[in-house]
């Protein structure tokens, strides 16, 4: 394992090293110390390396991740794993707003709570939150799965498209065009699989499923209040 002390090297040098060592077989595992809330740590990785970050990070940690497995042993700022394409990003603490925003693929696990707009505009990513999520989570979520083990804040899944939302607690309110849906056997097994990939132990039977009523897909004058 290679260790980088961020207090000594800075983010730009860290990311440069991560990029240039991507194909070096002896550099497949990294430990980053002293992140101290720095932004854009490990953003734009493209190879299946493993990165462990020891402490709290700022905005956009592991942004646009491809293939890498990044673990943050702390809390993180806005937009962790934003636009993630593939790979795994795990936050052992809490995540601020817009976690996994517009993620296209891969898995984001937040073991603690997530702030507002978790999974906003998600496009295929799977997100599992061990605790609660803030308001407007899953806003305009297009596809993928958002699993919230605790409660979800106001306006969950507002203007949602084809993504699925599973909530273990209860949502404070549902956003426009978001409705509760049947929890079929297929969905329960998908949820079980997501929880097991996330390494979170909780009874899938506690969960309810939410998704799009698909009433806002075409403008209709009688729905004008919802826009």
């Amino acid at each position: 394992m290679r260790t980088v002390d961020l207090a000594a090297t800075g983010v730009r040098e860290l990311n440069r090293r991560l990029r240039s060592a991507a194909d070096d077989p002896s550099a497949q595992s990294w430990l980053v110390t002293n992140p101290k809330g720095a932004h854009a740590i490990a953003a734009g990785l493209t190879r299946p390396v493993r990165i462990q970050i020891d402490g709290h990070v700022g905005y956009y940690c592991a942004g646009m991740n491809q293939a890498a497995a990044v673990t943050i042993d702390g809390h993180c700022g806005t937009g962790v794993a934003e636009n993630i394409m593939s790979g795994l990003v795990r936050v052992r603490g809490n995540a601020s707003q817009s976690a996994g925003a517009s993620g296209h693929g891969g898995l984001l696990v937040i073991e603690g709570n997530a702030g507002p707009r978790c999974g906003i505009s998600m496009k295929g990513v799977d997100i599992v939150v061990g605790g609660k999520t803030g308001h407007m989570s899953g806003f305009m979520a297009q596809s993928g799965n958002l699993v919230v083990c605790g409660d979800a804040g106001h306006d969950l899944g507002d203007s949602i498209y084809e993504a699925a939302i599973y909530v273990g607690g209860s949502p404070a309110s549902l956003g426009a065009d978001c409705v509760e849906k049947d929890m079929t056997r297929k969905h329960r097994s998908r949820l079980r699989d997501l929880l097991s990939r996330a390494g979170i132990e909780i009874d899938p039977d506690r969960f309810r499923r939410f998704g799009s009523a698909r009433k806002l897909y075409h403008f209709r004058v009688d729905h004008a209040d919802a826009y």
């Binding site: 932004h39 854009a40 953003a43 734009g44 700022g58 905005y59 956009y60 942004g63 806005t78 937009g79 934003e82 707003q97 817009s98 925003a101 517009s102 707009r117 906003i120 505009s121 806003f139």
Partner: peptide, 15 residues
Amino acid sequence: PDWTGPDDLAIKIQE
């Protein structure tokens, strides 16, 4: 979806 205002934008540009 992941930034509002000029302070955030500076960080987005950095990313």
